[in-house]
Nucleic acid binder design. Structure first.
Lengths: 354, 354
DNA sequence: ATTCGTTTTGGTAGCGTTATCAGACTCAAA
DNA sequence: TTTGAGTCTGATAACGCTACCAAAACGAAT
C-alpha cells in the first residue's frame, strides 16, 4: 500500500450548521395535526381521514421528512433490519448470497447488516451477538462451525433466525437448504452417461454437512448404476479453495488412483484440480474430465469453462431473507421445509469417452 | 427454483416469553448504583471510582448486558455504524471492497450496512438516502453514475462521507483513490519491455473516470517510448464484463487492427477477450498477449492465469472505512490525499516476442 | 471543626417515535 | 332533538440511553 503524503492546503470550512433534521413534530406542526395522526399516516394505519392523510403526505414530501428508524426501533423493540452472517463476503459464493438477501430486504425497506464470521464457532456466535446488540431481529445465518446444539439454542431464542445451506433437523422449517445429495447424484449420472466409470471424488478432509451429503450422493448414484467400487477413490484437501483442490488431486495421484473423471465438492476446488492436472501435462477434458459444484462466477470464467451443478444461492438467500423478515414480524413454530434443487450446467470440462 | 411443499407437522411452541432483555436499569439496580454511573462505565468515562467501575463491569458480564444501540443512536443522533454503497456486492471487485470495509468497522465495533446501487444516479442517491435514514454517519461510497456536482453537495452535507475509487477534486481529502494512470503506464511499459509495440486497448464505450485515466496512461507510456500510433487501436465494449470484453475485441478484429498484445480495462473484460480469441483459434499468450487490471479473484483462476495490475481495493476500503468513521466523529475540512498505487502481477497471459 | 477544591455520584429532562386511552366529531336512526 | 355507533383525533406515557447539573462524599489544609 502506497499513500502519498501530499498535503492539500484547504480553506477552512464554513462551519455550516447542518440543517437540523425534520422530525415528526415538524410535520405535525406544519400540517396542523398531532404527532399521533402523522404517525398513523406513516405507519399506514387506516383510521385517518382521507383529507388528513393527503395533507400529511404532502407535507412529508415537502419537508423531506424521513422517520428516524432508531426511534422506531427503540419504541417497537425491533430494528426492522436484516442481518446476514457469512464466513467471508469476498468469496463469490457468499457475495451472491449477500446480494440475494439484499434484494429481498430492499423490497421491504430493511437495511442490511453484514458480518463476516470466518473460521470458528466463536466468530459465528460473536457475529450473531453483535447483530442482536443492534436489535436486529431478522437474520440469515450461514453457519459452518457452530455445533447444532448451539444453533438450536439460538433458533429458540431468535424467532427471525433462518439458517441457510445447512439443515438443523429440529428447526427444519427455519432452514433454507439445498439438496446436495440429489445434486451429487445428478452430476454423477451425467458422468456415467458420458461413459465414465472410474470416477474420483475431491472433497474436504473434515467434511462439513454439505461435503458429506455430496459424497453420499455420489455413492448412491454409483451403486445404483451398478458401478462397483471395491474402494472409492477419494482425494481430500484441507481447505475448500484452489489449494485444497490441488492438494486433493495430488493425494489421488500419489495413491495411484486411476480415473477418467473427477467430481469436486465445489468450483474452486475443481479449478485447483484442473490447474494441478494441466501443470502435470494432463489435459482437461481430453484426458480427464472435471465437474464442479456451485456454478459460481469463476465456473464460467475459467478456460475450459466448468461443467458444474448450479446452486441457486442468490434465490435461496432472497427466499431466506423474506422468510426471516416474515418470521421476525410474526414468529411461527412450524411450517414447510424450504428445499432447493441444484441443476446441471453443461460446459466444457467434461468429455464423452469410449 | 424448486421448493418442495412437504409439510412438517411440528409440535406447538412452548410460548416461552423471550427472557426480556437486560437494560441499563437492571445493571444499576443490581449494582446498587445509578444509571448515570453505569452509563459512565459503558462509555469509558473516566470520572468513576475504580471499585464502582469494577463492580459495574462484573454485573454487566454476569447479566450479559449489551447497550441498546438504537437508544444510543437516538440520543446521540449518531448511529455508530458504517454504510457501504457499491454497485453490486456480487461482483468480486466490490465484494473485496466490502470485505475490507467490514474489517475496519469490526475493529471499532461499528455495524456495517451495505446497499447495492446499480446502474443509475437515482439508485446511488436513493442508497445514500436510505443510509441517512438509518442515521448512518460514516459512509464509504463507490459512485459511478452520480454527477460530480451532486457528490459535492453530498460531501458538504455529510462529513463522514468518503468516496472510493473516484476523485472529486474539491473534496480530494475525502477520496480514497487509485492512480490508474500510473498503473496503466506500468502495464504498458511491461508490454513494451516484452517486445510488444502493436498494443490494442479494450475499454468502455462510455468511459468512466477510471477508464479514461486508464487509456490516458497507456497513451502517455506509448508516447514516452516513442511508439508512434498514427491512430490508436481502441476496442470498446458497452459493459465492463466478459460480454463487453468480447464485444470490444470483435470490434478490434472487424476494424482490421493488427496487434500482438491487448490491454484490457479490467480482468473480467480481459477474460472476455481471451475467451473470444481462443474461440477464434488465436492462442493466448502465444499469438496474442493479454493483460488485465484489478487482480480480482478470477485473474488467478483462469488458464492462462492473467497478468494484471493489482489494485489493493481491500486495503483501500479498509483505509476508507477508518477515515469515514474518524471523520464522522470529528469532521475536518481538509487533509492529505489518499492515493494508492496499483502494481504489476506477472502471470501467464503475457509472452515475450521477437 | 471548618473550609475548600476535587472526585464521584444521582436526578432529571430529553432524543423521535408509537401505543393506549379517552375525547370529539360525524351521521343516521329514533 | 336526542341517542348511539362509528370514525377520527390528540394527550400522554413509555422505549433505553446520555447530557447536564446539582448534590454528596472525600480529603487536605486551615
Amino acid at each position: 500500500m502506497v499513500t502519498l503524503p501530499f498535503i492539500i492546503s484547504d480553506s477552512l470550512d464554513d462551519q455550516s450548521v447542518g440543517a437540523s433534521v425534520v422530525t415528526i413534530k415538524d410535520v405535525a406542526r406544519v400540517s396542523g395535526l398531532s404527532t399521533s395522526t402523522v404517525s398513523r399516516v406513516i405507519r399506514g394505519d387506516s383510521k385517518v381521514k382521507k383529507s388528513s392523510r393527503a395533507k400529511v403526505q404532502k407535507i412529508i414530501k415537502e419537508l423531506g421528512y424521513r422517520p428516524n428508524i432508531n426511534a422506531q426501533a427503540l419504541v417497537s423493540k425491533r430494528s426492522h433490519s436484516l442481518g446476514v452472517v457469512i464466513p467471508q463476503v469476498s468469496m463469490p459464493f457468499f457475495s451472491s448470497l449477500v446480494s440475494g438477501a439484499e434484494g429481498a430486504a430492499k423490497e421491504t425497506h430493511h437495511p442490511v447488516l453484514i458480518v463476516n464470521a470466518y473460521g470458528s464457532e466463536q466468530a459465528e456466535l460473536d457475529a450473531i451477538e453483535s447483530l442482536q446488540q443492534s436489535r436486529c431481529d431478522a437474520i440469515v445465518f450461514h453457519s459452518i462451525h457452530t455445533r447444532e446444539e448451539k444453533l438450536v439454542e439460538l433458533a429458540e431464542r431468535i424467532p427471525g433466525l433462518i439458517f441457510i445451506n445447512r439443515l438443523i433437523a429440529p428447526f427444519a422449517h427455519r432452514c433454507v437448504w439445498l439438496d446436495t445429495n440429489q445434486g451429487a447424484q445428478e452430476a454423477t449420472r451425467y458422468l456415467l452417461e458420458n461413459g465414465h466409470t472410474n470416477i474420483a471424488i475431491v472433497t474436504l478432509q473434515t467434511p462439513t454437512q454439505g461435503a458429506q451429503a455430496y459424497v453420499d450422493g455420489i455413492k448412491v448414484a454409483l451403486n445404483h448404476a451398478g458401478v462397483t467400487h471395491q474402494d472409492l477413490m477419494i482425494g481430500r484437501g484441507s481447505v475448500d479453495d484452489m489449494e485444497g483442490g490441488k492438494e486433493a488431486v495430488i493425494n489421488l495421484l500419489t495413491m495411484g488412483a486411476k480415473f477418467t473423471a473427477i467430481l469436486a465438492y465445489n468450483d474452486t476446488m475443481a479449478l485447483g484440480v484442473i490447474h494441478e492436472l494441466i501443470k502435470r501435462g494432463v489435459r482437461v477434458p481430453e484426458d480427464v474430465s472435471v465437474a464442479g459444484f456451485d456454478d459460481s462466477l469463476i465456473a464460467s470464467v475459467s478456460i475450459p469453462q466448468l461443467t458444474t451443478m448450479h446452486c441457486p444461492i442468490e434465490e435461496m438467500a432472497n427466499y431466506a431473507a423474506k422468510l426471516a423478515i416474515e418470521l421476525a414480524a410474526e414468529p411461527m413454530s412450524s411450517g414447510r421445509t424450504h428445499l432447493f434443487m441444484p441443476h446441471l450446467v453443461k460446459r466444457d470440462s467434461v468429455k464423452q469417452i469410449n
